[in-house]
Nucleic acid binder design. Structure first.
Lengths: 217, 217
DNA sequence: GGGAAACGGTGCAATATTGAACAGAAAACG
DNA sequence: CGTTTTCTGTTCAATATTGCACCGTTTCCC
């Protein structure tokens, strides 16, 4: 019953398989990893630090698609039809990133059926996550979206650890994630604080239980 | 150089491989294919007709995630960790739908590396498409989003055939796709008509070249 | 240390969007 | 064929959102 086996995509196992076909490298804060428009020829893995994926529209408006943390993969787009990067990846703090050549992954997919299956499960979870983001946009007001973004940043929903504080994300970035303006984010953040959903004097602390209640009622 | 081979996911080839593990069936207009909350244990393929994927939020608001047409797959979610359907699939006209059991796909993935690779490419393209939808929400006004939705419905961007008219989609459905209200859709549709971007008396005709120009300027 | 840059709080007028209502036209159905 | 449902055009007041501006504070970098 192979279908009953655990389907969690284990980055450790994966990286072991990749072995010599990957290269690890440090990035400074704000350093570019890849840029929108470049050819996509490799995938990446966050060994330490954080990475921001942004898109710049024709009209100069910016949006943040995702923020990755330790253990996340990004840049999977290279495995589809040959294409260009849709987004720009930037380190948002000193980070260690593993680069895996497209050709290496393809060959593992070819040689290891179990890996292929896990990788597919991984992609499905990415589709699911992206669809949730889309639905959030379609269904909720910017206030709710901000609340959800804060919860996710606090690590809510990720395994067992409702992350302490972790990410330092500016209100500007929050605005680009939520799809609104910075002044609006500032307004809501203060409201959340008054309502006791979050604390912040310098660093942010999310009261996830209360905030989660707020989000769903 | 296997990576240079065409990566287009060919449904025909795929279905041939599936062979006896799939069942084809007709659906009446508005008939349910699967419902939000059910266990996800199969994937589907549109042999003829159209299928609408909808989500109902806790607060009774509805959103349309996608409309599938001949040759499209949907319900891939079953290949991830065992989970429930996030959305409801409904036929939006008399349709013929092929159902492929999860176990069948998994076994093909296991036995046929080339198929696994193609399937991964297919998933990547779905991620890409979903991210584009998300970006559209983050960056554009509802008027632009409606314009884009109309273009996509008209088959713009799909291979070589800027589809003639095809889908009959009500303004209500358009609103749920775009993420706005029906009255707003009605307003914009009339504006588009006055601007010569579309025609419609009974059936809709999209002047894709002009509409596309409008969308990008 | 000190200047520059980024960040956060706030106000505000111009727009965009919602949500609900009503009526006529078209389409589906028995 | 009539009736019931769905679809469309339209209105309108209440809200939500934008885009900008200004200013004090913090952070970063030389």
């Amino acid at each position: 019953m192979p279908s009953q086996r655990a389907l969690t995509f284990n980055p450790g196992t994966f990286l072991k398989k990749i072995g010599k076909c990957s290269t690890s490298r440090g990035y400074r804060n704000k350093e570019l990893i890849f840029a929108q428009g470049e050819a996509a020829d490799a995938m990446f893995y966050v060994e330490a630090g954080n990475v921001k994926l942004t898109v710049l529209s024709k009209h100069g408006k910016k949006a943040v698609i995702a923020i990755f943390r330790q253990g996340d993969f990004f840049g999977e787009g290279c495995l589809g039809a040959p294409s260009l990067r849709m987004s720009t990846a930037t380190a948002v703090r000193p980070s260690t990133i593993v680069r895996v050549e497209k050709i290496a992954i393809i060959s593992i997919i070819h040689d290891d059926p179990l890996f292929a299956r896990l990788f597919i499960a991984h992609l499905i979870s990415r589709v699911t996550r992206t669809e949730e983001d889309l639905l959030d946009q379609l269904l909720n007001s910017s206030e709710k979206r901000l609340a959800r973004t804060l919860l996710l940043l606090a690590g809510f929903g990720t395994q067992s650890k409702p992350h302490p504080a972790a990410l330092k994300v500016s209100q500007g970035t929050l605005a680009e994630m939520v799809g609104t303006t910075r002044s609006r984010v500032s307004f809501f953040m203060n409201r959340f604080r008054k309502m006791g959903l979050i604390d912040y004097n310098g660093s942010l602390h999310v009261h996830w239980a209360v905030l989660n209640f707020f989000l769903h009622k």
